[in-house]
Design a binder for these strands. Sequence first.
DNA 1: ACCTGAACACCGTTCAAGT
DNA 2: ACCTGAACACCGTTCAAGT
Lengths: 222, 222
Amino acid sequence: MSQSEAPRRIPLDRERVVRAAIALADEGGIGSLTMRKLAEKFDVVPMALYKHVANKDELLDAMVDVVFGELEFPSGGGWKTAMRARAVSMREGLLRHPWAVELMEVRKPGPANLRHHNATMGCLREEAGLPFRMAIHAYSAMDSYIYGFALLERTLPFETPDEYSKAVKARAEAIAEEHPSPVDEYPYLFEIVEEFGGSGYDYNEEFGSGLDLILDGIEHRR
Amino acid sequence: MSQSEAPRRIPLDRERVVRAAIALADEGGIGSLTMRKLAEKFDVVPMALYKHVANKDELLDAMVDVVFGELEFPSGGGWKTAMRARAVSMREGLLRHPWAVELMEVRKPGPANLRHHNATMGCLREEAGLPFRMAIHAYSAMDSYIYGFALLERTLPFETPDEYSKAVKARAEAIAEEHPSPVDEYPYLFEIVEEFGGSGYDYNEEFGSGLDLILDGIEHRR
DNA sequence: ACCTGAACACCGTTCAAGT
DNA sequence: ACCTGAACACCGTTCAAGT
């Protein structure tokens, strides 16, 4: 029966703070990540966090580097297979952490970030055997596509083809309410409503389609 | 000598409010756009703005639709030329309004947005003669690329190849300070430093290169 | 019809103080 | 060594009031 029966808190440390911040942003979006709410998660006053991260900016840097650490390096099976796997892993990571899309390449790069970019560039230079300029073009095209796809995908508040089809119809109705004759005004948008309102839309297939377009293009120019 | 010599303010209206908000965001980033600072621009108390926009969210909707209104529709010269011109115009718009990149496809779509998407889809269906599914694939690949490129381009705080080369060297030195032997650890990143530290890096050319990769791929699959 | 003023419930972060 | 409490300079937005 020691005197420490009282609910003792596990002391905070940097890693727990960063992980909790990621969980908060994953759940409620980056807007819901505030130092005050993060402190609440640990039943602690906001200022307690500042012993472990210098400020919110540094916290964001650390969060982004954790996401980079979750991404697969390109490796094995030839450059095309390897780059494809990297792209798929990146999209999945950005889907798990939608708040990260705009931050990945903005924050001060951490070690996982540097390792990832170095490994990817290495794959293009060595495995694919691309000359330097061509490797840069390939890298730029792929990452633009991946980040852009993630950016667009993130805006859509549904994950399955079925949810998609419902949302498309709802949006069409919302437009119809504000416009006198929407089908005549925007015929090609309403074609989309008709086509996808029933069957829905498969994001995985869409991502793969554009990815193969780019990978084939790179191979073709090699 | 009427009694109205006193500095009379032009009364606010919605358009002036939206334009001033865009100017503020263009200059200082979206973070510097606050209702309070916007009100200051008009020498008015913050609450005066709320007669013209319902709230900040609706202001953002309106700002995004102004940007959509600045973008060229695809038109003339065959689908490939038209789609290329649209892409270039979009990148330029997103470069003028970097804060818009993450908002373009998130906010409630306004009339300029609907017109733009309808015209682009129309170009792919009619001028390019693509079947529906292929038009969707083409649209998705192009917009993902354009938004992603704009997202990545925006993170780099310099605009000319020369500024780029200086920034690359500065970043390399920052990394070198924190890592014991960075050239061995990240050889492919340091290849980039060497290659671009001198000559610099041309963003316009890079954008065009990836764009042509995708346009050629679409043509090839048609 | 349009603008004001005070107030409320939030932010990140400082500083000095507690244990 | 780690956490607290009070305070400061900010937010968006409400409500009731002024002209």
